[in-house]
Each structure stands twice: as structure tokens, then as C-alpha cells.
Design a protein around this nucleic acid. Structure first.
Lengths: 335, 335
DNA sequence: CCTTAAAAATGAAACGTTTAATTAAAACAA
DNA sequence: TTGTTTTAATTAAACGTTTCATTTTTAAGG
């Protein structure tokens, strides 16, 4: 009573052992439920630990075991509306397993990506969830044997969680065809990333097959359309748009509105990503949904499995996308 | 050469010391630039460390010093569009000072808030940046002497970073008055949080003074308007709306559109928060901007200062807001 | 050249755990 | 009873740092 909870400091394992009248080793075994400890002793130790409010010092544990039960999440840009939901689910899923998450944002620069990874590795994270900014294997020399899960990219060395973008691109194109459109423009997002390119390429392919591809341009990942794109969008050459990213699609809607065109009466639009903005627009943006929430959860599951079994064979998980109909698709206007 | 970089494992301080032909102590002093080490020796140690690619083991360092150079960021909800920018800037500012950030999201539950804090404290974070979900001091018994910075709330025990919401509420009301409106409705966000309540109350107060307050309702923080609010908004009783949160404001615009009313021709709207969605809407949402980026940066600065000087007197920083004009304010329609 | 002070370098303890190796105690078989 | 096995508990080393107390070396002063 007077000796136990004194000293103001957080109680250490030694304090627990002392108070319980056992050795530090026994206390450790009891608390971790390993080794051979008598039933009575175990209960007693647990009880004392609870009474003292003992919390193991994770730094010490980490140093001894080499495991921090922390993981790192490396994202290109937190303010990109696609990522917060992903991060949220990663954090939650990790918490379920008593892992904490260092979140890092690399602002689109490979150097920042490397710096972030370095810092995390030095901190001793048990694994990394990495959404690379491009197709390069930027972290190749850094990671050593560290478990890494790569999102939405290809990588020969790591577990992968990907999206069936082809099917998404096709769905969008087919939906517009089915609505009766025959002059459809395609706007792709960044072309330096394969998964992004493919979205639009598979759209374009479908459209070509139906002889319905009006044009295929591309635009940076941004709400603002580049002049050439803005022009094409509004010059009447297409009655519908298949856009590789919601943010660009919203930008397109904006441009059209500014030029007095109506969506979807004059021109139909389908986006890709299902970012939260889309549901808030008026009319709501029809788009291809990516199950980010599940991806986040599955990312930590897969990573934790890899941490537990480093030698298991590499995994590659592909998530299906779905078309979500809102208000931006209609039949083409009568000529 | 053959002895140094062998063993596959990351080199430890001992390896560096050995390779440099000095004691571990000297190596430590040299690398940390403390103690008395001869110039030549210091340079030599540094050089060897670099050659071996030595990185201090932060877990060990943490255990020895009790400092992890990690901080925790506790937010209510990452998918709330207000927070990603904050988180991003916290992460960046922290990185500048070689700190890493555990990000956590409490989903609006005080228990989750406590659990998150517990976990972080157990991890030994050097401090916490905390955006509480309500006005309660949920973490009161947990934090002990740990440096904590509280955002957008009041708290008697911690450093504070707040927003001059009163002035924001007034600005919005005055702008609408200035545009000529005389029947203005106020929609406040959650009323259980003082900083949120005040936004709308100071709007209402200004309007009352001008005898221009049509009504004052409130709505959950959500895009969907509650029936009573939706009705009031569209029944012609107000020619302008002063809304305590952008998300609700966008919901209001949506409701109005669905009922065939135009913004701003029929009804003007001003929001609060300046969430990124607002700029993307058509027309862009006029709103009160909160400098989240600066707040994030200042939060880590203040927290780090507190970590360095735990006894310094408590700080309270109040950020100014600004009105940002976009497209949702116009004179009232002629009757 | 000797003494003393200052500077540089070192040895070893400590931080809070885990865990291998060891000993002590209890249970069992003969 | 006695030896043997099983079970329970302990001792002590180790993880990679920092840092105090000490020793060794160098420089300074006479």
C-alpha cells in the first residue's frame, strides 16, 4: 500500500513482481501467458498488476523483442479525397490488433517517399503499407526484409492489393453506350501510373469497339481542366464523357456549367473513384466505386499475416469495383 | 571491410565504435555532439558511422531516455473533410523536427478517445495533439504530466489553439446584411460543443440587432437536412442562410436545388469551415475560412515547445478567420 | 623536468523488458 | 523410501542506447 504505488512514476514490471512477491521473470511469464506458471501465481500476478495499473513499457519491449507493434502508412497525399477513408480504416483495423499507425504523406515526391520510409524503418515499424506515387520501386534498397504491402501498384517483391480497374473502365464505357451515346470522349488522369492509365484505356477500347470514341485526352489529377481538354469537353464533339478520376469529372462538370451546358441533359459524365465529393454534387456524380474501406482493412490483415509468417508465398489481392449510378447519366440530347 | 558490414544485421553503435577503434561511449558522444570528444575523433567516428550506414535504434534510445520523438494526433473523424489538411500539416511540421506522428481517429466516441490516448501513452509518445469530440475533458485522469495540446476547445490544463469563431459568425451575418437581406435564417451545427454553438450564436446576435433574424434552427453535422430544417429553408421565410458548417450548407444548397430554387438568385448562403468541397461546388460556396494549415503547424510548434519546457506558462493561441467570397451570395430577389 | 589542471577517452551501470539456463519443489513410479 | 520425471519458480544475460564516474592523455605553468 505505502510501498507499491509510491514514487509517482509509472509502475514497472519489477514493481509488480515485488508487490506480488515473485521474481520478475515469473511476473513476465504470467502477464504474457507463456512459460510455466502455476494457476494461483498467475492469477495473483494479474491481480496485482491490475491493482497497480501496470502497463508494460512498449519501448523496452520493442528493444528486447525487436517488434514495435507499430506499422507505417505511406500515402501520396492526405488531402486527396480518396485517401482519408483508406487511412481511417487502416488505423481502425490496426487498432483491433493492438497495432498503432504512423501516418505519412509524401506530397508526390519520391525523395519524400524515401525519407518517410527511412524514418519509419528507423523507428522499427514491423511493416509498411505503401501507396506509391508512381510505378517505380522507390524503396527497393531501403526495406531489406521488412514486410511491405503495396497498394494499387505492381511490385515484384511485395504483397499487393489492387483494383480491377479494367473492369471499371469497361463498365463506365458500357453504361454510356447503353444509354445511347455514340460520341464519347475519354479523359484519363495521370498517365505515368499504369493503374491510372488502364482505367481509361479499357474504357477507350470498349468505345472503339463500338465505334463511339470521339477523342481521348488526358488531364492532371486536378479540378482544373487544361485548356485543350476544356475546349474538347465543351465543343459538342461528344455527348458523354468517360473520366478516369472523379476530381477531374467534377472539374469537367464545372467547366460545362460555366459555359452554359447542362449535365446530364446536354452531356453525360461518369467518373472513377467514388470520392465523397461526388455524392454531394448536384446532380450526384455517377462513378465507379472502389472499396477503399475494405482495402484498408485487408491491407492491414495481409500485412499482419506477412509479419507473422515472413516466408509465406506472396499474395496478390484484386478488388472488384462497382458502378454507382447517380445523376450524371442520361440519354444523349436529340440532335 | 570483411568484419564491419557482415552479419546481415543493421550495424549497432558497438559496431561503429569497434570499426572506429574507440569506446562505445565516445562513439555515442561523437554522434550526439555532446561530452568532450576531440575534433579528429569526432570526425572519424562520424565518417565510420556514415560508411557503415549506421542508424541509431530508436527503441533503445527511447528506452534509455524516455523520449520517443513521436507524438500522437487524436482526431474525431478523418473522413470529415475538415481534418485531412490539418493532419497533413501536423505530419509535415513534425517531420521537420524529426518527430513522427501516430494518427488516430475516435469516431465520435469518448471511449474510443480514451482508448486511443491510453494506447498512445503506453507507446510513450512525447505529447498529444488532441481535437476533442466534445467539451468534456475525457482524458483528464490519463495524461498525467504528459504535454497535450488541445484544438478548438477549452481546457483548463492544456495549451490551447482556438479559432475566433465569434468574429467568423459576425462576418457572415454582416456580409448578408450588406447584400441587402433582411430575412435571414441561421442553421447551427452540433450544439453540444461550445465552439460550434458560438459560430451561429454570434451570427444570430448580429442579425437580431438588425432585426433580420428569420429563424434559428440546428442540424446534425451532415449533408442531409433534418425535415424541419429542410422545410424552413425552402418555404420562402428567408432570403439568405447563415450556416454553421459548410457540409450542412452544401446540404442546404442541395435541398434547395431539388425543390427548384436557385442559389444565389433565389437564396444566398454562407457556410463556415472552408472545406475543400466548397470550392468545387457550382457555384462555389462562400464561407468562413479557418486556417487549418497554420493551425496544424502551430500545434506541433507549441507542443514541441511544451515538451522542451514543461513548466513554461500555459499558452492559448487564437487564430483569425477570414471571409471568402465565392458564388453563393447575391442581393435578395425582388419581391 | 616536475606538478597540476584541463581535455579526451573509457568502463560500467542503467533503462524495462524477454527468455535461456538453472535450480527448487512437487508428483510419480518402483 | 529413493530415484526420476514433471512442473514451477528463479537467476542472470541480453537487447542498444546514454551518461555518470573514473582513468588516461595532453597541455600548461613554474
Amino acid at each position: 500500500m505505502t510501498k507499491d504505488e509510491n514514487s509517482g512514476k509509472r509502475p514497472t514490471l519489477k514493481d509488480v513482481a515485488l508487490a506480488a512477491g515473485v521474481s520478475v521473470a515469473t511476473a513476465s511469464y504470467a502477464l504474457n501467458d507463456v512459460g510455466s506458471v502455476g494457476g494461483d501465481t498467475r492469477r495473483h500476478v494479474l491481480e496485482v498488476a491490475a491493482r497497480l495499473g501496470y502497463r508494460p513499457n512498449l519501448s523496452a519491449k520493442a528493444m528486447r523483442t525487436g517488434k514495435t507493434s507499430a506499422i507505417g502508412l505511406i500515402l501520396p497525399d492526405l488531402t486527396n479525397p480518396f485517401f482519408p477513408a483508406l487511412a481511417q480504416n487502416v488505423v481502425h483495423a490496426a487498432r483491433e490488433s493492438a497495432y498503432s499507425v504512423f501516418v505519412t504523406d509524401t506530397q508526390g515526391s519520391p525523395e519524400a517517399e524515401r525519407a518517410a520510409a527511412q524514418a519509419l524503418i528507423q523507428r522499427g515499424v514491423d511493416g509498411l503499407i505503401w501507396f506509391p506515387i508512381n510505378d517505380e520501386d522507390t524503396l527497393a534498397e531501403l526495406t531489406g526484409g521488412l514486410p511491405v504491402l503495396v497498394l494499387d501498384r505492381d511490385n515484384p517483391r511485395h504483397d499487393l492489393i489492387q483494383i480491377d480497374v479494367d473492369s471499371g473502365g469497361r463498365m463506365a464505357a458500357e453504361r454510356l453506350i447503353r444509354a445511347g451515346h455514340r460520341r464519347i470522349g475519354v479523359i484519363s488522369g495521370p498517365t505515368d501510373v499504369r493503374s491510372s492509365r488502364q482505367r481509361s484505356e479499357s474504357s477507350a477500347e470498349v468505345l472503339r469497339r463500338h465505334d463511339a470514341l470521339a477523342w481521348h485526352l488526358h488531364n492532371a489529377y486536378s479540378f482544373d481542366l487544361e485548356p485543350a481538354v476544356a475546349a474538347a469537353v465543351a465543343d459538342g464533339s461528344a455527348t458523354a464523357l468517360c473520366v478516369g478520376a472523379d476530381l477531374i469529372a467534377l472539374g469537367a462538370i464545372n467547366t460545362l456549367r460555366q459555359r452554359g451546358l447542362r449535365v446530364p441533359e446536354d452531356i453525360s459524365i461518369i467518373g472513377f473513384d467514388n470520392i465523397p465529393y461526388g455524392a454531394l454534387a448536384f446532380p450526384g456524380l455517377s462513378t465507379i466505386n472502389i472499396p477503399v474501406e475494405e482495402m484498408g482493412i485487408e491491407a492491414v490483415n495481409t500485412l499482419l499475416r506477412r509479419i507473422a509468417k515472413p516466408t509465406e508465398s506472396r499474395r496478390r489481392l484484386v478488388f472488384d469495383v462497382t458502378y454507382v449510378e447517380r445523376g450524371t447519366v442520361a440519354p444523349p440530347p436529340a440532335p
